[in-house]
């Protein structure tokens, strides 16, 4: 973290702490209302005090917007993977990598549902969290190992990245054949019947 960035964050924290303290002082009635009123009247009546107050407000707005840009910019940067080529830069949205992983569902028939969450760290590492719903016939250790291998190979093949790829799998649910059958029956039940559907015109 750069010195300037650290300074801005510390300043903002100090301002928020001051506001918090002021609220506590007000709540505990430590400062009489009369004194607060006098201070406000002094600021309002003295042109120099008004200028200082106005400038402080302006400074706070500038610092706030700077901090917001800093935070949003960092988030934006972390949502993409970038690499340089001879003609410029190539950035890949992490949502595109998630699209890619989602398409692996078709490759492994035991997977009913796959929800990936991809993050990139500053040390060229890609973290992939996979939330999977499996069919009951699946052998979990074998399947998860295979899924990790396929995911890693696909990311390396398509993105051409050489950095570390960490894949975590969370088996969220296992659907049994009875459950599937029940769901199928439920959906059939829910289908609206056509009035006089059984009658045939003669």
């Amino acid at each position: 973290m750069s010195f300037f960035r650290s300074l801005v964050i510390r300043f903002y924290a100090a301002v928020l702490i001051l506001i918090g303290l002021a609220i506590i002082v007000f709540a505990l009635n430590l400062l009489p209302l009369k004194n607060i009123n006098e201070a406000l009247l002094y600021i309002q009546s003295n042109p120099h005090a008004r200028i200082i107050t106005g400038l402080s407000g302006l400074l706070l707005i500038v610092i706030s917007s700077f901090l917001a840009q800093l935070i949003l910019g960092t988030f934006q940067r972390e949502k993409t993977i970038a690499f340089a080529t001879s003609s410029g830069e190539v950035t890949i949205a992490l949502s595109a990598v998630e699209d890619l992983i989602r398409r692996l569902t078709g490759i492994i028939p035991e997977i009913k549902e796959l929800r990936p969450d991809v993050r990139a760290t500053r040390k060229d590492t890609i973290l992939v969290d996979l939330r999977v719903v499996l069919k009951s016939e699946a052998n979990i250790p074998d399947l998860t190992a295979r899924l990790q291998e396929i995911t890693r190979a696909k990311i390396q093949e398509v993105l051409g990245l050489e950095g570390q790829i960490i894949i975590k799998i969370h088996v969220a649910k296992i659907i049994t054949t009875e459950e599937k059958e029940r769901k199928r029956r439920d959906s059939e039940k829910d289908e609206p019947t056509i009035p006089y559907g059984g009658y045939i015109r003669t």
Binding site: G88, V90, A93, S95, A96, V97, R103
Partner: peptide, 28 residues
């Protein structure tokens, strides 16, 4: 990047400094 550079140089004679590609999604 290569095709864009060639097309622009051929059609407009403009020299391009950088061509940045931003991959936003993958579709079938």
């Amino acid at each position: 990047q290569e095709n864009v550079r060639q097309a622009l140089e051929k059609m407009t004679n403009i020299t391009i400094k950088d061509i940045n590609v931003n991959v936003q999604a993958i579709e079938r």
